[in-house]
């Protein structure tokens, strides 16, 4: 979750003046900044040891038939096997639909943040924020237990529907037509505290002169929202979009705990294939290959996003 535009500047080398310096002056610059490297070293070394080294091991494993003990080089077999999966298309379609949905559902925290921001009373604004954050006290897995029950035949959702006069006999997670939609619906009304607060921060930072000017011009509420306020939280929106990309493509928790990817293959996603390869098949090489592909997909999506953002800025 990041400020990617700053990162981009770094990657382009805009703020690194030493780029054309000769080798000796480079060494001198390094020596001069030795204390900085020292300060960074625990973090960087930690990342290399506990993250990059294991990740590279997995990358190496993706070219092997590897069960965690013995590894035999098999070239691109694991990748080919994954890409020839007859269920590949369905699992990517599922992840694509989830992605679209998760992006669209950012509208809910945006709405909540906006409503809070527009409240005239500061105390009200504060207390709504407290209420939005409150659900983080509950352990995460409780929501899985809860929503599984809500979706069951005689569970909460059907109880509510029946109370409303609809004789619902739908087994929400047990029906190929409703399972994916149910997984999306899970967590309704999707107002994650973190997201709401980020949006709210963006609204609060809008300079009041801007709004006053709009008021003088006689802008209506809608015009004001779409022309002034929404563009001002674009920065926040973009971060959340990238985070949603990363989170959705990697995620398999919901599919695993709610439906195991079923019924049949209705809610299967690539991440769950990877998880199953690890846990059920002991196929670490194959699982690693899927992981590498997911990494590449996220990387490409992020880079495209970066390009789009830069071109809109120019």
């Amino acid at each position: 979750m990041s400020n990617f535009s700053v990162a981009q500047a770094d990657l382009d080398g805009k703020d690194v003046p030493a780029r054309s310096a000769s080798r000796s002056s480079l060494l001198r610059a390094i020596w001069k900044n030795r204390i900085l490297y020292l300060l960074l070293s625990p973090t960087i070394i930690g990342m290399i040891v506990f993250q990059y080294y294991p990740a590279l091991t997995a990358f190496w494993g993706s070219f092997h038939s590897w069960d965690g003990r013995r590894a035999r080089f098999v070239g691109l077999f694991n990748y080919e096997f994954f890409l020839e999966d007859p269920r590949l298309l369905q699992s990517w379609v599922n992840i694509f639909l989830l992605l679209i949905f998760n992006l669209a559902s950012l509208a809910m925290p945006l709405l909540i943040a906006y409503l809070i921001y527009r409240l005239p009373n500061a105390a009200h604004r504060y207390w709504y924020r407290v209420l939005v954050v409150l659900p983080i006290i509950a352990p995460g897995f409780v929501f899985i237990v809860l929503w599984r029950w809500l979706f069951s035949l005689d569970g909460g959702i059907n109880i509510i529907l029946r109370a409303l006069g609809v004789d619902s006999q739908v087994v929400w997670l047990g029906n190929a037509d409703t399972a994916l939609g149910s997984i999306m619906f899970m967590g309704f009304p999707w107002i994650e505290a973190f997201t709401v607060l980020i949006f709210l921060a963006g609204f609060i930072a809008i300079p009041s002169e801007m709004l006053d000017a709009a008021a003088v011009d006689g802008a209506t509420g809608w015009q004001r929202f779409f022309r002034i306020e929404l563009p001002q939280v674009q920065g926040q929106l973009k971060v959340l979009v990238i985070l949603t990309f990363i989170g959705t493509v990697q995620d398999f928790g919901r599919a695993l705990f709610m439906t195991r990817g079923g019924p049949g293959y209705a809610t299967m996603v690539p991440g769950l294939r990877m998880y199953n390869a690890f846990t059920q098949e002991n196929a670490y090489g194959y699982a690693s290959a899927i992981g590498v592909i997911l990494f590449i997909v996220i990387l490409v999506l992020t880079l495209i996003n970066q390009r789009l953002i830069r071109s809109t800025e120019q």
């Binding site: 080294y53 294991p54 990740a55 091991t57 997995a58 965690g68 690890f278 699982a287 992981g291 996220i298």
Partner: peptide
């Protein structure tokens, strides 16, 4: 961007 489960066993 590195999926967490990838690095579990190593």
């Amino acid at each position: 961007m590195v999926p967490g489960i990838l690095t579990l066993v190593p």
